[in-house]
């Protein structure tokens, strides 16, 4: 409770939370008050912003506001799902190895280190490239989650193995708790604040990964995402046509989400880590 009050008084956290709230509002409020169709042509290609179409049209003459709202939703969805998958995978592998120790720990650590060195973007490119059709938004999120769990696992393992020799864990062991019981009841609760921060970072990196993959033209086929919008704008000469409204707004949205999540993360670090607290 005290921590939350602390958090609400940190300017960084407030800025981050406001920005995040703003992007969520842009994603979910407009469809309630106006009709947006991201597949309907409303005019010529690359019309500049007007009172009717606030951000003009894209290369097909579709309203940019409608595209942005749809794209923002997909990006948030991908980030959230990838964040959950990566955090869960990383935590399970890290906690189990860190608590168990011994051969299992060595194997899991070796595996983690191995995939840590192989660039995850490369694996992502190969995975998405091999599946031409049926590359759905959800599948992309799963791919991202499955390639970015490594550093979570590494960090969580270090934390878990330091908790392992604590008295309360030893007591739990004497009281006859099994491995799973100890991991879930006596180790994970201590890592919760840390895991929440990891989840925030993983969500941010998931959104960025999706936009990178889509920028390369390996994005989801079934939906509009911010990265897809950028890819289309660059491919259809928005830059040389000076149609800034086709590429600038998606970039701003991606940056604002990532920035908001980073700021929330660092301000939480300042609160949860006593060394950094002023």
């Amino acid at each position: 409770m005290k921590l939350i009050r602390h958090l609400l008084r940190t300017p960084g956290f407030l800025v981050g939370a406001t920005l995040l709230g703003l992007t969520l509002a842009i994603a979910f409020l407009p469809p309630l008050v106006m009709s947006l169709d991201a597949y309907q042509r409303v005019g010529l290609a690359y019309l500049p912003p007007t009172a009717e179409h606030w951000l003009g049209t894209d290369h097909l003459g579709i309203d940019m506001v409608a595209l942005l709202v749809a794209g923002l939703r997909s990006s948030l969805y991908v980030g959230f799902l990838a964040g959950i998958i990566a955090t869960t995978l990383g935590t399970l592998i890290g906690v189990y190895g860190g608590y168990k120790g011994g051969l299992i720990d060595d194997l899991l650590t070796a595996c983690t280190n191995l995939f840590l060195v192989i660039p995850s973007l490369i694996v992502l490119i190969l995975l998405s490239g091999s599946l031409q059709e049926g590359r759905s938004l959800t599948l992309i999120a799963v791919f991202i989650g499955c390639t970015t769990w490594t550093w979570t696992a590494r960090a969580v393992r270090a934390q878990a193995s330091s908790l392992r020799s604590r008295d309360h864990v030893a007591l739990a062991r004497i009281n006859g708790y099994g491995t799973l019981g100890i991991v879930f009841l006596h180790i994970l609760p201590y890592l919760l604040s840390y895991l929440f921060m990891v989840f925030i970072l993983q969500t941010a990196s998931g959104i960025l990964s999706e936009s990178v993959i889509s920028m390369l033209g390996l994005g989801p086929y079934d939906s509009i995402s911010l990265g897809n919008l950028l890819n289309q704008a660059i491919r259809n000469e928005a830059l040389s046509d000076g149609a800034w409204w086709a590429f600038f707004p998606p970039m701003v949205l991606i940056t604002v989400i990532a920035f908001a999540l980073y700021v929330i993360n660092t301000s939480m670090e300042g609160i949860f880590n006593p060394r950094l607290r002023k």
Binding site: A204, L208, S211, V212, M215, L230, I234, L239, W244, F247, M251, I254, T255, A258, F259, Y262, V263, T266
Partner: peptide, 18 residues
């Protein structure tokens, strides 16, 4: 620095080009 590092690399590149 925090803002710059939040800008995805490709966005930064696009901005510079533009």
């Amino acid at each position: 620095a925090l803002l710059v590092s939040a800008i995805p690399s490709f966005c930064f590149g696009i901005l510079l080009v533009y």
